[in-house]
Design a protein around this nucleic acid. Sequence first.
DNA 1: CTAAAGCTTCACGTCGACGTGAGAGTCAAC
DNA 2: GTTGACTCTCACGTCGACGTGAAGCTTTAG
Lengths: 139, 139
Amino acid sequence: MRIGELARRTGASERALRYYEEQGLLRPARRPSGYREFTEADAATVRRIRTLLAAGLGTAVIAEVLPCMADADGQLAPACAELTSELIKERDRISEEVGELLAARAILDGIIAAPVPAAPGGEGTAPAPRPAEDCAAAV
Amino acid sequence: MRIGELARRTGASERALRYYEEQGLLRPARRPSGYREFTEADAATVRRIRTLLAAGLGTAVIAEVLPCMADADGQLAPACAELTSELIKERDRISEEVGELLAARAILDGIIAAPVPAAPGGEGTAPAPRPAEDCAAAV
DNA sequence: CTAAAGCTTCACGTCGACGTGAGAGTCAAC
DNA sequence: GTTGACTCTCACGTCGACGTGAAGCTTTAG
């Protein structure tokens, strides 16, 4: 099939499919005209690529792990053991990111939960340069 | 103080401090020579900026909320109520991101936990184009 | 006075998975 | 043959908080 049909069948844009080829994730045959010719297996591969992208992997890592993966009914599985450690690395990286985001959210929660100091009149608890009146303009 | 000292005292790079000014987060005075002249209050502001950046806010949002914040002993607090809703929006955005990352990690966990299909000999469970031998080369 | 810090304003590079045209060739149907 | 859908290859734009020189003033220590 040509690129348009593959795009429709996988949900990926044509640009994305060309990009996957550029990154070495797909190797479609070429017609004499230069048109790409994809197979059914390519459609399955694209679905795997999208799954791995959704899992936060970059195309470079996907290029490494893609030829080592098998899938049964949409459930991807590593086809060799060494691959698993790579996947675990990625999972740990994601866990770290989650930790950073949770820390960031905790900071925000702290600010949100903080008591609002006296707004009018006094300058007792507000050492800010321009404390109050900008608030109305900002929102 | 000049930019170098402020950088040392806040941990921000000089480039970062110039960037904060460019984004309207700082408004240092200028000497006749063109040198920036910062105050003690600027040092406190920079610390607030870094806290908010660490909390995942962008400089545009920080520019909005910064003039409305007070802090007591390093604990930032909103100085007006409207600000809180903005902060809650940001917190919710972070929560969404966390959710996406957790979903991504779940995908990886599913792959990692999947049983490794028979690698040598058979083609029973592996419909992949080139199943096995690339694995060794990849790792 | 001189050299060395320290400061200034540009202005491009980063990282990644594409989006979005531009300009041109290919193919099917009519 | 001709229109219109489809495809091709460039190649720049995106988003953001800076990093990293470059070329040239200013201030300070000696």
